[in-house]
């Protein structure tokens, strides 16, 4: 404290130590609980695995085992075939998610708008959509494989079919929740379709659409892992886990799970960030 005020008074460049100190003073109260929480979780896990009650290795094994240490240190290695670093494995899975999710967003939003603006269509499709959205991602895998015959398109289809429902259903709801006043303004002004969509429908439904998009990105990421585990022989973090399990490299599974969780968190934050830019919450 004293040193940092003194350095500021003398207007010398701040040392690294004092700027860390300053950062900690500002953010410490907010950061301390999660840091302690994570530490406690890791310690309990480590003690549990040392106690011999489970075969599950503790978090320290990520470093002590040579295989995972290499994976941890060299995420970018590529020895061809399926033998690639975790960065490439994750990227391959993300690529599939990007394709399936984009298709889901396009189809979900456009069909949602259509269904939301048409009461008859809404009633007609309601039972089908509610039924289909209850089908678990894994149950779609055999259907997708039979229908599409190939792993890659089948994986993308599973992403699509899992993540399309929350987008579609939330968009429909958002369109149906457009305040009557705004629709009346549009009616009395006889707004063109384009003007109505740009000025009334989309701005009004956007918060709902983003809710759907955020739920969907989580589901899409969950689904790709599940789908890849079943679809053997492709580069991807899901199949990587399955492969490690088959060969009994348990620490590798744990490392991959940490990657999956981290990526899932980043994806969620990404959509939340887009939402705050495009559709900021209204007072």
């Amino acid at each position: 404290m004293v040193t940092s005020t003194r350095t500021r008074l003398q207007s010398r460049p701040k040392s690294v130590v004092s700027s860390i100190q300053e950062f900690w003073q500002k953010q410490g109260a907010g950061l301390l609980p999660p840091i302690l929480g994570i530490a406690a979780f890791l310690i309990v896990w480590q003690v549990f695995s040392w106690s011999g009650l489970t075969r599950l290795p503790g978090p320290l094994s990520l470093w002590t085992e040579q295989r995972t240490r290499e994976l941890l240190l060299y995420p970018f290695y590529d020895r061809g075939g399926l033998d690639k670093g975790l960065f490439w494995q994750t990227l391959a899975s993300l690529g599939r998610v990007a394709k399936g999710y984009t298709a889901a967003a396009v189809v979900g939003i456009s069909v949602g708008v259509l269904v939301g603006t048409n009461d008859w269509l809404n009633k007609a499709t309601y039972p089908v959509f509610q039924f289909l959205r209850m089908v678990a991602p894994l149950a779609w895998v055999p259907i997708a494989l039979v229908a599409l015959q190939q792993n890659q398109p089948a994986a993308i289809f599973v992403i699509f079919i899992t993540s399309v429902w929350p987008i579609l259903i939330n968009t429909t709801e958002g369109v149906r929740q457009i305040p009557e006043d705004y629709n009346n303004v549009a009616k009395v002004l006889k707004l063109s379709r384009k003007d109505y969509y740009l000025n009334v429908l989309f701005p009004s439904a956007l918060p709902y659409i983003f809710t759907g998009l955020r739920i969907a990105i989580g589901l899409a990421w969950l689904a790709i892992i599940a789908a890849e585990i079943v679809m053997s022989g492709i580069v991807g973090i899901g199949f990587f886990i399955w492969d490690a399990y088959q060969q009994n490299y348990i620490s590798e599974i744990i490392l991959a799970v940490i990657y999956i969780g981290g990526v899932g968190l980043l994806l969620d934050r990404l959509i939340a960030f887009l939402q705050s830019k495009i559709a900021p919450a209204r007072k």
Binding site: N184, V188, K190, P203, S204
Partner: peptide
């Protein structure tokens, strides 16, 4: 028969678009 701009309404709750 239908709403039209020749009979413009000033709505009770103003009905202004909040995003414009």
């Amino acid at each position: 028969r239908e709403p039209g701009p020749d009979r413009m309404v000033v709505f009770q709750n103003y009905a202004l678009l909040p995003w414009r």
